[in-house]
Amino acid sequence: MREILRAFGGPLSLVIGTLVGFWLLILVAVPQVAMLDYSLWSQAANADLSAAIDRAYAEATMAEFDRRAEANPAKATELDEKLTALKRTIAELEAAQTSPPKTYGLQNYTRMSPLHAYIFVRTILSALAVAAVALVVCYPIAYAAAFAPTPRRAAILLTALLVPYAMNELLRVYAWLMIFDYRGVLNSLFAAVGLADLEARRWVPFLETQGALFTVMVSVYALFMVFPIMNTLQTLDPHQIEAARDLGASAWRIHARVVIPHAKPGIAVGVITVFMLAAGSFAVPQILSRGTGGDWFSQLVYRQFFEANNWNLGSAYAFSLLVVSLAIVFAMMRAFGVSLREITK
């Protein structure tokens, strides 16, 4: 603290402290706490309350009707008291309806339906699989880019990799939808050679397969795998590969013993990044599946918030996703032996 003051002086330290405090507290930490808080309580279902209110109103109407017909003053006073009590009950119920009492507990976490739990697990496992597939697909590309025979070819390859990313993620996914759709590019090609008949609705339902989802996710996140691996490979002296080859090592052995060990930090960064993006992916499944290819967990979260309007359950879902994906990220960091600093390079 004193170090900061000495380095920047009072006014500047204050500005720095305010900005960082605003960011880390107001924008980062406290919202997460608020989300956690939301996930830990629930309110009585409104349906029960409104029925009770309806009942009380009916009773009050009856009592009022009786009161008007009643001539006996003693009975009338009794009815008056009953009416006042009913009105109080109604006011209480209505107050409860606008702000029902919160019940704190883990109910939002324990109440996840088997289907939702299944989708949650499937999302996490699929995200891991996407990362693995992306690694296999992208490793040769990173290798080719890092060891391109001429700088010119390397530059062309890099540009070629970057251009498709000029389009927004949503549009890229959407383009894939046009390819995989029932009447899309692929099925039209199939129809042209007689493998499908679009008129008879005899087509290949690509969109209902996990394969289409994987194809699209890998294509959308490929760059996040290629670049870190390429960056670490560029620091590998090509002479090492030549020396290994000179010593008679096979291509497999060269990769297994020389190239991959060197690329490990980059591979770790790529796998972790792609896993994170896939686990939290929203645009890809939303656009691609249109509800046919099975849900991704992020879509369930979205629906809890904006369709079921149950923010508490939605928060619990979101928090579960956060904790599990962070846990897996840290587990992978340990397994690969990379630090936070390397991940964020």
């Binding site: 880390l24 608020a34 939290g280 992020s298 979101a318 956060l322 964020t344």
Partner: peptide, 25 residues
């Protein structure tokens, strides 16, 4: 502090949106 500062990068994007929405409500 470094870990706290880079944590938003490691957090799924939808969760940043959700937590902001919930907090400011």
């Amino acid at each position: 502090l470094y870990a706290l500062m880079v944590s938003p990068i490691l957090t799924p994007g939808i969760i940043l949106g959700i937590s902001t929405l919930v907090f400011w409500r």
